[in-house]
Design a protein around this nucleic acid. Structure first.
Lengths: 318, 318
DNA sequence: TTGAAAGCGCTAACAG
DNA sequence: CTGTTAGCGCTTTCAA
């Protein structure tokens, strides 16, 4: 079972490889007769062009990589889904890299660009120093992190999200609102969710209470941290949680303890909205983020002009 | 910013490209002096070999594709995660294809094999006629579907899962057990979950009640179907549900209606166990399925001997 | 221990 | 309209 190449097709059809190539790519002048002969040979031999040879010649792979912390997180799986579907429309294929927030892994994936395995990269995992990116050449789009002026960023309007959530809680009568968020140490636009919370609380002369539960902690630890909140002496009648999964933990805990507390989450993945229809949450436009990321990357690849920043609107689901 | 090639390195180091290649691949005899010169040139030029050129020469891409219905489903995202992590250990990269259970998409992804874009493929989406696969050459591993004798299958012990679940419900005192499952029309080993349910019910002289809710239906429709079950005249004191997401709908509905009913689900993804700690479910060994799929595919690629079928054990989580 | 040269499969000048 | 040929970047004979 040896591989069929364009040469075999040319021989079979009794023409040159160039002519076969012309038929394949529909380029230049080809007579109907020649085309027919070639098509027949292709059919008979069940030939498909070797895409790696094409990629090699054209220095263009029609592949893109998406680097995220883990595809197991519903936010990233929804993002990945829409990016893949969008790219597939133009014949692009998508690699997935789970960095697990480890810079070693992240660097490994980033190498794919330099190795010319991919035409571009969407990075949604951010564990490499900004400076390292300055040395990297190649088409990159960043999701939710400003890397440098050369790399466009797609984000949702985090500040607006935090504002909507906090204002809604206040409007629902909450006065002691706890804010639970991922670690604020990393420089991420997601921090603006908490900034907005603080601003709104201050405007309303309410006391801020912020609790950080690092994103990287295990599920078991997070459950424990949430339980501790409920059994501590912290007083609250509302919680704004940075993340729907944590929000669901909090909802469960509140109902277990029979404690009345309004909760608003963040992300609004289809899955979480589906599993917890009663959860009020700030919905990020994940599909739009995905499509915009793909679109901007494809524009970069085609050397078309792109903006430096795309901020997409959020809303409450209820 | 023109691309640096092996030729530039050779010129800079004052040696032949062969020697550079030898250093890169650590093959053949190279003097320390030559090695040093080459290494220096590589460093100075910040050179990385073009992997597409390598792939092309070696007819080996170090890439694999995974085809699934949708990465948005927690089962498949967990599967994909572990497959990617496993493959990365040997320098392989993973493409993801979301077929959406559309045979057109599936065929498109399958083409990547013939185009020689990938060294192999793991198929977890099954919407193409078995006969079509007979014509496909290339390394394929199937997850949860027998395709043909040439394509190894990895599955979990579905029958045992159905048995464990049904027996547990009976043991918990249920006598009117409803079984809710995906459509049984497709030929899938998952059907054995229901077969086992039937067998156990018959052994215990209990009446079988089976309800099919096709996998492909929308979330909203599924919610509705579950609600209908609870408001219908069907009597049940226990439900065995084919799928944790549906099981969670049923749990929610039961609690809303304040109806006492034991529920056992299926899949046991980390995410669903985490979100619904109280849900009893049949845990598929997803990580093992993933690792085995990757391992078997890599063996196929290396022309090593593999089994035809791998059935992995399941268990109840509680 | 090193280098020259062929060739992987394809596309694109360039010639006819 | 069609064919000859060079060359994409790399690895690997083969020869020195």
């Amino acid at each position: 079972m040896t591989k069929i190449t364009i040469k075999n097709v040319a021989e079979k059809a009794g023409v040159s490889v160039t002519s076969v190539s012309r038929v394949l790519n529909n380029r230049g002048y080809i007579s109907d007769d020649l085309r027919t002969k070639v098509m027949e040979a292709i059919d008979e031999l069940n030939y498909t062009p070797n895409e790696i040879a094409r990629s090699f010649y054209k220095s263009e792979t029609k592949s893109v990589a998406l680097i995220i912390p883990t595809i197991q997180n519903p936010f990233f799986s929804e993002l990945a889904f829409h990016i893949e579907r969008e790219l597939s429309k133009t014949g692009y294929h998508l690699y997935i890299g789970n960095s697990l927030n480890d810079s070693v892994n992240e660097r490994e994936y980033l190498k794919m660009l330099k190795e010319q395995r991919v035409d571009g990269m969407i990075v949604g995992s951010h564990n490499i120093e900004i400076e390292e990116y300055d040395k990297v050449t190649g088409n990159i789009v960043s999701v939710e992190r400003k890397i440098n002026d050369r790399i466009p960023m797609i984000e949702s309007d985090n500040y607006q999200g935090g504002k909507l959530a906090t204002e809604r809680l206040i409007q629902q009568g909450c006065r002691k609102i706890l804010c639970i968020s991922g670690s604020q140490t990393v420089d991420s636009p997601a921090n603006n969710r908490v900034v907005a919370y603080s601003d709104v609380m201050q405007e309303n002369h309410l006391k801020e209470q912020i609790l950080e539960i690092p994103f990287a902690e295990s599920a078991a630890e997070k459950h424990k941290r949430i339980q501790e909140v409920f059994s501590s002496e912290i007083e609250f009648d509302g919680i704004f949680v940075d993340d729907d999964i944590l929000a669901s933990y909090a909802m469960n805990e509140a109902s277990k303890q029979n404690q009345k507390v309004k909760i608003i989450g963040f992300d609004g993945t289809k899955l979480m909205q589906d599993l917890f229809p009663e959860l009020i949450t700030v919905v990020q436009p994940i599909e739009e983020i995905a499509k915009k990321s793909a679109e901007v990357l494809l524009r970069l690849i085609k050397h078309e002009k792109v903006e430096n920043l795309y901020t997409l609107p959020v809303k409450l689901n209820q």
